[in-house]
Amino acid sequence: MKFSHHNFIQRAIIKTINFFKESIFAQEYALQKGFLQWFPPQVKIISVLAVIVGTLLTKSIALLFVFYLICLLIASLSKIKIGYFLKRTWLFIPIFSFFIALPAFFTDFNIAVLFVTRVLVSTSYIILLSLTTPHTRLLKTLRSFGVPQVFVMTLGMCYRYIFLFAEVIENTYLAVKSRVGGAIHYKHGQHIATWRIASLWQRSLQLNREIYDAMLSRGYSGEPRVLDE
């Protein structure tokens, strides 16, 4: 659990950010005309929930594998490349869960397999939902489930600014790297990490002020409103 290699944090950060940018903001599959893309988001959310509950209720590993195969089938019908889908779903949650369950494979094999399979199936279906639905529509759909407006608005703005933050971090990392070269001493690296978080926070506060001004300038008075469609 201790970060032994001095570059570990640096590499982890850049890798995480890149993977995250690719995955959360990749929307090309949502715009394809495939099988799942055709369903309204409400239907998809409820079906995925039903599948997850089903996954939890069964104890049959065989049945879980059937669920999983169906998931892969739907993915390919929805024009998602299977290689990409496997990479996207196995990283990180099922792999993490596999590591977490590793010791249990030697004590209680059955439950360990059941556990990892359940996590894999649930995660795959959820990712299927997120890949085949435009995120902005997914966020809007929450409104139709009666989620209060303050949540919906915060969700929308949060989603918008996560991307900006990811870029800020990436740029800070690259800027630091270009100044000090590739190798950074562990102590120094720690210092940079602290500083990066502080600068991210500073950027947050500045953004808050500026965004508020931009909202105020266009007449914001504390009551969010939406267009009827």
Binding site: V150, M153, T154, G156, C158, L200, Y212, G222
Partner: peptide, 15 residues
């Protein structure tokens, strides 16, 4: 009203 964007930015920060 001033704190509304902070709600979203705080959430993004935590994310």
């Amino acid at each position: 009203a001033k704190q509304v964007p902070m709600l979203a930015i705080g959430a993004a920060f935590s994310f």
